[in-house]
Write a protein that binds this DNA or RNA. Structure first.
Lengths: 329, 329
DNA sequence: CTGAAAGCGCTAACAC
DNA sequence: GTGTTAGCGCTTTCAG
C-alpha cells in the first residue's frame, strides 16, 4: 500500500506539500499540485483513513445503532437519518448491537470510532450509554427516556398511542379488549400498555387476566399468543397488539381458526409498518412518525456536535391510521 | 479523554505494561493487572479505536455496502452476512453508496477503513472496485459478474430466473406476455430480461414493443408503467415484472383500473420479498436465495482474508414460488 | 515481568 | 509556496 510518503518522493516534493495538495489546500501552486496528483494516480494511492482520523481526532462519521440491522421497520428511519447526515457532509454507518456487550455497536461507542451516535437498541444498557456519551461524543437515544451529559432522547409518545388505540376501540363499541404485549423489558411496550390501561380504566372496563398474553414483538409470538387466546374458549371482541408484527401473526392464527377479521374480532396494531396496508384486511394501526423522529434525532445530534444547547428529551406525537381491521360493534 | 498514558501514570506502571494488562496479555502479574484495570476504571478510560487500527493495520471489521440502507429486501441478506461475520469474530458495519463517488461506501473502500467488503450496490463503479480491491483487501460483489485481484462475485442466476418465470407463464397457457423492466444499467435486469427473451423465442412468441416499459425497480415505477400499458388499449394476458416492488405497484394500478388479478391479467414478480405472500392475491414470484447468497459471500470473504484460494465467481440457483397471481389461461 | 523507545500514516504548526 | 518536524494514541520489539 502506497503512503503519502511514497507519493511525495515520486513527485519530488516534501511530505507536507503532498498532504496539502491532496487535501486541496490553496497554498500549493497548481503545477506542484498536478505533479502530486499524478504521482498519487500512478501509485494508486489512497489515504489511510485511520491515520487521518487519529490525527484529526474526528471521523466525520456518525453511527446509527440498531438491535438488528435487518428489521424492515427501520427503513424510513434510516433514510431520514441518512439524509440529515448527508446534508451535513457527514458519513453514516449502521451497526448492530447483536451480541450485547461484545457487539460491534458497543465497540464503536466505546472506542469512539465515530463522532456521535443515534441509538435504537434496547440491548444497549444505560450504563454503556452513560459512560460513552459526553459533550464531545453526543448520543441520542430513541427507545428510552434517558439523559445525561451529551445524552438526550427523542421518543414517540407510546402511552398516548396506547391510549388512542384503546380509546378508538372503545368508541367503536368494543367492551372486551385484549392487549397482547411485547417483551417485558421493553420500554416501548410498557408505555403502550400503560396507555391501554388508562383508557380501559377511564371507560370502566376491565382487563381480563386470561387474555394477558405476551408475543415478544414478533410475528410468531403474536401467532402463538393468539392461538393460546383462542384455546381459552372466550374471545374478546377486539385485540390490541403491541406492534404490527404481532398483529400479522395474530390475524394468521385467527384465519386458521376460521375467525374473520374484523367481523368476528377486530384488530388494531402499532407502528404502521409498510406491510400494514397490504394485509387483508388492511390493518388499522398507530403510526409512529419514523421519518420525523429520525430526522429530529439527526438534527439534534448535529446541534450537539456543534456545541449548541438542546433539550434533554423530545416526545413526538403518534397518529391513528384507520383502515379495515376494526369494525363498529 | 483519558489515554493509556494517563492510565499507566495513575497505576504507576510503564506504558507497555498498561497496554499488556488492558489487552489481557499473560505476561503481567495479576496484581499489576488489577492495578491497571482499576486505574482505567477510575479514569473511565476506553481505548482509541483508530490508534489501535493504525498500529495493527487491521480493523477486524468488514463492511456490507448497499445502495440504500433502507431497502426491506435486504433483511435476510444482512442477517446472514452478520451471522458469518460474528462467527468469525469480526464486526460488521453497513453503509450506503448513496451519493456515488462521494458516498460513505466509497470512502470506506478507498480509505481502507475495514478489512474487506461485500458490495451490492450498482452505483459503485467497476473502476472503484478494481482500484480498491487487492489481495490484502478482498471484495465480493453481488450484483454483477466482475472479478480481479481480491475481487470475486457471487450472483444469482437471473437469466435462469427470467426464463423460469416466462416459461411458467407460457406453460399456463399465456401467449401475450409483457416484461416490465428495471433500470437499463442494471445487470440484474439485463439477466432477467434475457431469460424472458429466451423463453419467448423458444416458444415462438413475440415481445410487443408497445409493452416494453420500464419501471426502474420501484413500486411507483411499476405503477406508472402499468398505467401506461393500460392506456394503450390492448393488454397482455400476463405480465412479468422485473421485481416484486414493481409488481406491487402494477397490481395497484390494475386494481384502480377495475382489472382483477389473476382473472383479467396474470402477474409474476421476481425476488420474493417478504411482502409477496401478504399481497392480495398472493404474488407468484421467483425466489432469490438471499440467505444462501449472503452466507456464501461472507464465507468467501473470510476465506480470501485468510489467503485461501477461491473461485472467481459463484452462481446460485433461483426457485419458482407458486402462489395466486397467475391463472391457467 | 517491566520499561524505554520506535514507529503506524497522517496533519498542521512553524520556519524558511 | 515549500520543507521540517512534532506529535495523535497505540502496540510491540528489545534490553534489562
Amino acid at each position: 500500500m502506497a503512503t503519502i510518503k511514497d507519493v511525495a518522493k515520486l513527485a519530488g516534493v516534501a511530505l507536507s506539500t503532498a498532504s496539502y495538495a491532496l487535501n486541496g489546500d490553496s497554498k500549493v501552486s497548481p503545477k506542484t499540485k498536478e505533479k502530486v496528483l499524478e504521482a498519487a494516480r500512478q501509485l494508486n494511492y489512497s489515504k489511510n483513513g485511520f491515520a487521518m482520523d487519529l490525527k484529526r481526532s474526528r471521523t466525520n462519521t456518525i453511527a446509527l445503532i440498531l438491535t438488528d440491522l435487518s428489521g424492515p421497520f427501520y427503513s424510513e428511519l434510516i433514510r431520514s437519518v441518512q439524509d440529515v447526515a448527508l446534508s451535513h457532509g457527514y458519513d453514516l454507518i449502521a451497526c448492530s448491537s447483536l451480541g450485547g456487550k461484545n457487539s460491534t455497536a458497543v465497540k464503536f461507542l466505546r472506542e469512539k470510532r465515530v463522532d456521535g451516535a443515534i441509538v435504537l437498541a434496547h440491548n444497549i444498557t444505560d450504563e454503556i450509554l452513560f459512560t460513552s456519551a459526553n459533550s464531545g461524543f453526543p448520543i441520542v437515544v430513541m427507545d428510552r427516556m434517558t439523559s445525561g451529559e451529551g445524552l438526550i432522547s427523542v421518543i414517540v409518545d407510546g402511552e398516548m398511542g396506547g391510549y388512542t388505540a384503546t380509546r378508538y376501540l372503545i368508541d367503536k363499541g368494543h367492551r372486551s379488549i385484549a392487549y397482547i404485549s411485547g417483551p417485558s423489558n421493553s420500554f416501548d411496550n410498557a408505555l403502550r400498555y400503560r396507555g391501554y390501561q388508562l383508557a380501559m380504566k377511564e371507560a370502566g372496563l376491565e382487563e381480563k387476566s386470561k387474555w394477558k398474553l405476551s408475543g415478544n414483538f414478533t410475528r410468531d409470538g403474536g401467532y402463538k399468543a393468539t392461538k393460546m387466546m383462542m384455546m381459552q374458549g372466550e374471545l374478546p371482541s377486539a385485540v390490541f397488539y403491541g406492534n404490527d408484527e404481532m398483529a400479522i401473526g395474530g390475524i394468521k392464527a385467527m384465519e386458521e381458526g376460521a375467525l374473520t377479521v374484523p367481523d368476528d374480532v377486530s384488530v388494531i396494531g402499532f407502528d404502521d409498518i409498510q406491510l400494514a396496508e397490504y394485509l387483508n384486511p388492511k390493518l388499522t394501526t398507530i403510526r409512529q412518525p419514523m421519518h420525523e423522529s429520525g430526522s429530529l434525532a439527526g438534527h439534534l445530534l448535529f446541534q450537539m456536535l456543534n456545541g449548541e444547547e438542546v433539550n434533554l428529551s423530545y416526545k413526538l406525537r403518534v397518529e391513528l391510521i384507520e383502515r379495515e381491521s376494526v369494525r363498529q360493534q
